[in-house]
């Protein structure tokens, strides 16, 4: 009888120990996942900021690029897929899906025309994918 109780004690101890190791492994896996997702989000935000930087440079004469009803509308061909390479010889790369739209903000301002530009960038290298939205108001002198 004593032998059987020892076996039961040992079995219980091993089950508790297994649960402890599995939970610790899960915890570390979650931490690694969070670190990787944070890195992907960081880079995805940068891609969205790059698009905003390009929009900052649109000249007054080219403002139709933000007019959805004009033939020059820059987002008519969006969403586009952007492949970004990193490293001394471009050995690392990331792929992003960039979407964008702009709407005219009719404030009745006689001096300034404003467009609200919305940029969405998606990185599908992690599951669920990372999606970032940035909004920028671009103003032109009338």
């Amino acid at each position: 009888m004593n032998d059987y109780s020892d076996v039961l004690y040992l079995t219980a101890a091993m089950v508790i120990y297994s649960m402890l190791t599995v939970n610790t492994a899960k915890s570390f896996l979650n931490t690694s996942d969070t670190v990787i997702r944070a890195d992907v989000e960081y880079k995805t935000i940068i891609r969205a900021q790059d698009v905003i930087e390009d929009i900052k440079l649109i000249k007054r004469d080219d403002q139709n690029k933000l007019n959805p009803n004009h033939v020059d509308y820059m987002f008519s061909s969006y969403p586009i897929t952007v492949n970004e390479t990193f490293g001394p010889s471009g050995e690392y790369s990331d792929t992003y899906i960039v979407s964008g739209s702009s709407v005219y903000i009719d404030e009745g301002d006689p001096l300034i025309k404003r467009y609200k530009v919305s940029i969405n960038v998606v990185n599908e290298s992690v599951d669920p994918s990372v999606s970032v939205d940035l909004i920028f108001i671009k103003s032109f002198e009338r």
Partner: peptide, 14 residues
């Protein structure tokens, strides 16, 4: 390893 790559517009030059 972590990487950062970004275009920065120098607003004062525009």
């Amino acid at each position: 390893r972590v990487v950062w790559k970004r275009k920065i517009v120098a607003n004062n030059l525009i």
